[in-house]
């Protein structure tokens, strides 16, 4: 109870403070020490999903390590496949008191025409982990290695949404192996997993946390991982790179953004905070060990570059699929 109550009161308080801040700004331009009030963390999805857990864990770890003099107030703003929440953040241009995490929808919803704001409307701060994809096949299918797939005439895979990392990786793998891989869009990760376990699709590209329990149970067999280096959580799974496919390196960066136009000092400030988060034990036990992501800190410049690259990849994929011109 206390958590939701504090959120709503927090919102009221910030609304009030925002009014005061605008008034104060007109009178005295001198900026006090940042941050001077609580920070709104907008989660553009419902509670319980991957993005929600990520955002809340970051807020929790920052609070636990006492890195900020103020509080972070997480608030779910679901709707429009992320468009509602991300628009809420983007329209607070240059306000360093709004923060959000990136997700696949951060890129795909604007590209599919579902959002008035795109990645250009945000200031990247830093990323604190990367989430690779593990290419898997049902154990019953008999594929032991990536090369075994070459024997198949044609394969199918499942994806959530037409434009997704799974669809992107399917395209890349297909080009690399010279085997046709068709991506079938499903309505959720669960449906993809069910189709994979039921043998209705041949291969899948899974998040580490989803793949882990199935691999341990022996129902799915890992073939390759999409990160540049092997993941500590899956030491036995080779990278596509090792297997000689150097064009298949694609991970999801777990990072934070603010509205566009945030001062450079604020970005530097957050780089510092997030570096401490990424290297902390609390982050390792609360997130990395639980979700089996790869620990990694990327600064603002590197993160901005990764965002632009990811967006370009999705755009290329959409052109190849004929969704956009």
């Amino acid at each position: 109870m206390t958590k939701t109550a504090s959120t709503s009161f927090g919102r009221l308080r910030t609304a009030g403070v925002a009014l005061f801040a605008t008034a104060a700004l007109a009178a005295a331009p001198a900026a006090a020490e940042y941050p001077e009030r609580d920070i709104q963390m907008i989660i553009p999805f419902g509670a319980g999903g991957g993005s929600d857990t990520l955002a809340r864990t970051i807020a929790e770890v920052i609070a636990e390590l006492d890195l900020l003099p103020v509080n972070i107030l997480p608030e779910n703003r679901p709707g429009g496949s992320g468009a509602v929440g991300y628009s809420t953040v983007a329209k607070e241009t240059a306000d360093p008191y709004f923060i959000a995490t990136v997700s696949v929808s951060f890129f795909t919803t604007p590209l599919l025409g579902g959002s008035p704001v795109s990645y250009r409307d945000f200031t990247p701060l830093a990323s604190i982990a990367q989430s690779p994809y593990i290419m898997v096949a049902p154990a019953a299918a008999g594929y032991e290695t990536l090369d075994d797939l070459k024997t198949a005439g044609r394969l199918t895979t499942g994806t959530v949404g037409v434009v997704s990392d799974a669809a992107l990786l399917a395209k890349l793998t297909s080009n690399a192996l010279g085997v046709q891989i068709d991506a079938i869009p499903f309505d959720g990760e669960g449906e993809v997993l069910a189709a994979l376990l039921g043998g209705h699709v041949n291969v899948g590209y899974m998040n580490p946390s989803e793949a882990m329990s199935q691999i341990q149970a022996g129902t799915l067999r890992p073939l390759a991982i999409s990160s540049a280096e092997r993941s500590p959580a899956f030491p036995d799974v080779p990278t596509f790179l090792e297997l000689g496919h150097d064009q298949i390196v694609h991970t999801q960066l777990r990072g934070l953004v603010m509205p566009a136009g945030v001062p450079a000092e604020v970005v530097t400030y957050w780089e510092g905070i997030l570096q401490q988060v990424a290297t902390s034990d609390a982050w390792k036990t609360k997130y990395i060990d639980r979700f089996h992501d790869i620990p990694d800190f990327t600064d603002a410049a590197g993160f901005a570059e990764a965002i632009a690259t990811t967006n370009a990849r999705y755009e290329t994929l959409m052109k190849e699929l004929g969704i956009i011109e």
Binding site: T4, A5, T7, A15, R77
Partner: peptide, 9 residues
């Protein structure tokens, strides 16, 4: 208050 819905104020 209880359900955490941001009701327009």
């Amino acid at each position: 208050g209880l359900l955490g819905v941001p009701v327009p104020v």
